[in-house]
Write a protein that binds this DNA or RNA. Structure first.
Lengths: 194, 194
DNA sequence: GTCTATATAGCGATAGAC
DNA sequence: GTCTATCGCTATATAGAC
């Protein structure tokens, strides 16, 4: 339930974002969204064409937010290693999972190019951005070894996404933290030779 | 649709496994299962108490299979690194995702301790088994550095699980392969010092 | 064991009054 | 813009005949 300080479309989008995160696209009904937003049936269909349309608005915003949060860490101060570390250690609601990565397990999101596009786009950009930072580290000699920047970038992002999976399986965030620390120690020896 | 060479419960379980993999628990209806299995309504409820009961049987079998497939690679011949490599490179239907990891994104699976248990158990065992192999490598000096076996094990499993996420986002298996190769090169320098 | 019939609820959307 | 009414369909069973 969202307070009256938000417009109706705004409340619908925010309610949808929460429900998509919690239950996915398949598990989220227009009715549940309306109730969470405190909005009537007809009101929703006045502002949005239907469930896919509303979901698209929600997914776009969530993707945008994820991109901004990642950039806050990766575009910060410090060495390449420090920025990767900042990205990996940034505050996360681990047990809720990744609001974007989660959608990749949803058959109807994957089947609909419009819904998949923001997911694909933001994860692709994040991977490219991580590759830039890794390459920076390789160029400066901070990271060494026969590393391929694009590959290591994929490993970093996969570790995060997979960490969520393992954490949700156990019901504790421990496996996520282990995976991240393991990755940091694997990256560190190269960094230490700088 | 499953051929007549399988018993009715067997066909129901196999059909459920497929649908859980494809659509998750929330997205899988008893009706869809019955049609896929070529079995009538009443027949399903004769053999299983309901959707959760049938799903439990399906999840248990899928978890068991995953454990066996992983052990086939990790319990094989060769060095610790070679067995980890075999595990990472084993044949996978990458774009379908992990039939077990997928379930962790399902709110109703996570909320039901009975359904979550096989998921938690098999991923926990796999993590422990990977840690054993990593520790073996550290003990023999094949792997070196200040590595924590449990942490690296979590990183390996997370990379695989996250690789599926990235692959499904793009619609190609490339990010999965990149993530795995990146991880192998991060593990390799240590292995090379053996 | 398998079948059809029936039941209650919710889904996703449309219609039309206010 | 928002509301209530309604629609055709599916979800998840239960009942009871065969």
């Amino acid at each position: 339930m969202y307070s009256a300080c938000m417009s109706t479309p705004e409340r619908l989008i925010e309610a949808t974002r929460e429900l998509l995160w919690e239950r996915g696209y398949v598990g989220t009904s227009p009715k549940a969204v309306q109730q969470a937003a405190g909005v009537g049936q007809g009101s929703m269909y006045h502002h949005f064409a239907g469930k896919p349309d509303l979901a698209l608005a929600a997914i776009r915003r969530t993707a945008e937010e994820l991109g901004a949060a990642a950039e806050a860490a990766l575009g910060g101060e410090g060495t390449a290693y420090a920025r990767i570390e900042a990205y990996l250690l940034r505050e996360r609601d681990v047990l809720r999972g990744c609001p974007v990565g989660r959608l990749t397990m949803d058959p109807e999101v994957i089947a609909d190019p419009a819904l998949r596009a923001p997911v694909d786009e933001v994860l692709g950009r994040l991977r490219a951005r991580l590759a830039e930072v890794v390459q920076e580290g390789l160029d400066s000699g901070e990271l060494s070894g026969p590393l391929d920047a694009a590959e290591v970038a994929a490993t970093i992002l996969a570790t995060v996404q997979g960490g969520y999976v393992l954490a949700r399986a156990t019901g504790t965030r421990d496996p996520f933290d282990h995976a991240v620390r393991g990755l940091l120690t694997l990256l560190a020896p190269a960094a230490a030779t700088a």
